[in-house]
Design a binder for these strands. Structure first.
Lengths: 217, 217, 217, 217
DNA sequence: AATGAATGAGACTTCATTCAT
DNA sequence: TATGAATGAAGTCTCATTCAT
């Protein structure tokens, strides 16, 4: 999420340039968000104390409150930041062959453990926090699904994909991605017998094959 | 999860018969586990107070501690109970046609909102609680995956399924199930345009079709 | 305010008898209110910590919150209790001669330092706490004023008092009482030169004389 | 209290003329005192933050500390300033008829809501702050009492007033003034039935009449 | 065995004060 | 001299757990 501060800054390039003070505030916020994301991803929201976030950010506890109203707002900020990253990344995905699209969808997300863990954290917290739900679900998840759906419609129109319901297919792929993100935490211990471990790429190729050709003989 | 208490009792049927006292203890434990499952599923672990569990179980707070050492142990008991249910249900699944297997896998689980929410809850909590992880992941998820894998091996041997890696296919299906369990909370708001809402069965059929025939033309 | 718990109990004598549990709760509440009144009267609301109240009540800090939602509610309870005392005391005042009425009004209230200090505390806190304002001002002060006014109307009707506006006179007397309550804190240091200190009774007689006969020759 | 800053400057007129630097410092102090008086009068001491004072004074928070050691000193300065105003005003009061003296005493003070509220605030704070007590009580209140006493002695000597104890009478009048200052906040809601509201002047005349002629028939 | 009041550790948050710029 | 971000002490409140009845 350190690239994030960059992406955030880039997003507003067209706006009037930031004053020195605004830049400093933005940098501090980014520093705190980065620390919060780190600790949240490791320990979850409830098990994280503001003291720990402050220590990770190398700041005093009170300083957090000069930039965020409360702990909850800090979680929302991390979720917004996360959603922004997902949205930006997906905006650059190009639909070419079916294989390429699937590979991109299945492997591009969740390469980093922290990102996977944050993904699952927000999934959990959205149930109890409407703002997280809004920023995370309605931005990140909605974006993943609708962008995938758009790509599928195009592939069907191009005659590359067979004419399934693109809405359902997009949701199925998204669900599979999310499920794998969750499983990944446990897969290292639960390996197919005798096969040793898969690399993410190998796994991606196999899954892609399953989806494209179908499981039926 | 009221059947659950039954399943717990059934498990020990082969052991020497329970004394009256042991039956009373088991019944109380089941009562408490049922209450805890209910409240945990609605509010999550951290947002649930022992007071709420006691009220739901129609007992005093202190009584909980006569049967469980602490709140954490209560969560573990709920997880064990849940895993038992999943294992029992899967033991009865019979492999016939591919369609039947897929339908069973995709729709049997998660018909109830509470079960879906508990599933998600354990997924979250197992990151912070090794015992939940052990009982939930290594029993429930491991069971789902290996049983599915077994079924797939059979289907491949029968020539019904094409010879993909059954370990990967089983994991993909499991991941999809888990992903849909998570998405379900949000799907009502994120509907395919103009299509109205899917019933679980409709969705199951579509997804089954995707998986069996593949997405490729 | 220890008599208070009595008065409170007396008030509900006509209601169905309290269960043992209700009596215990009432006693604990009274114990906590008594402790809070003591510390508030000495240190004011803001300078009082919940820790101090708990120590004074010989309870743990958390126990306070089993009986009152928060510190503010504790202040309100003390104010209600205080208002109840004032109301009860005034209900017993009998109007006979002008001198007796004045003496009663001027000396009955505020014999104890704690009561005087609480009176001033509520006066201050009502500005920032609508509930204190309601219970304290609209019960205690309103009662003092209207009861005095009633007495004055009677005295005028009896031909003992000259026909001034009884509403204004009642407010003037009340204001004087309140002002003396405040001054009392400082009067010990600010004595009339050479006269030594007044006892409350001496002062009451002099003031009564001023009011009854007027200052004019 | 804008005249206040003036009064502060006037006080030192007889001292050697101020250098430019000293004038600037005095002006800044007056600016800060004015802001503090404004916010204190509205919100009370404890509910006022140094941030709010700084904003009201249109200065940065740190700047306050170049002129006052801490928040407490700021309150003391406001109290001193207030006492100064009271003393100055009373110095100009001339004793002629009894009616004139009473009217002056009863209406001159507390025409402004802010002054009334500050009066009450100092009354409260002096219980917890010896310096406020010293400057406010021993200057303002003491001055009011002793000046009134002096006037009363004169009136008695002139044969206009009957020979009561002038010390007590002065205290009674002062107490009444203070009581009305406190009641004023609530009087709007506690009106004599059917009489509508009093203007301060009407009230002053009635009260004067009560005091001069006495309540007795 | 059941009760539920008492406990107190620990979390979040506020805000007066400091200090580098 | 003015600034305002950083600080951290201290306060309120929650809630899992204990224990006397």
């Amino acid at each position: 999420m350190s690239e994030n501060s960059f992406s955030l800054l880039n997003m507003v390039k067209s706006l009037p340039p930031l004053s020195r003070r605004e830049r400093r505030v933005a940098a501090r916020k980014a520093q705190i968000i980065e620390a919060a994301a780190e600790v949240f991803s490791r320990q979850g929201y409830e098990h994280t104390t503001t003291k720990q976030i402050a220590e990770t950010a190398d700041l005093a506890e009170g300083t957090l409150y000069n930039y965020f109203a409360n702990k909850r707002d800090l979680l929302i900020a991390v979720a917004q930041d996360f959603a922004q990253d997902v949205t930006n990344a997906l905006a650059q995905t190009k639909a070419t062959s079916m294989e390429a699209v699937m590979a991109e969808l299945l492997t591009a997300r969740f390469r980093s453990g922290r990102e996977r863990r944050l993904f699952m954290l927000f999934l959990h917290e959205s149930r109890f926090n409407p703002d997280v739900r809004q920023y995370y679900v309605e931005e990140a998840i909605y974006t993943i699904i609708t962008e995938t759906e758009k790509i599928f419609r195009q592939l069907i129109a191009d005659g590359v994909m067979r004419p399934v319901n693109p809405a359902v297919a997009a949701r199925t792929i998204s669900a599979t991605i999310m499920g794998y993100a969750a499983l990944y935490e446990f897969l290292q211990e639960i390996q197919p017998d005798g096969d040793g471990r898969f690399t993410p790429n190998q796994l991606g190729q196999e899954v892609t094959d399953n989806f494209i050709k179908g499981l039926q003989k």
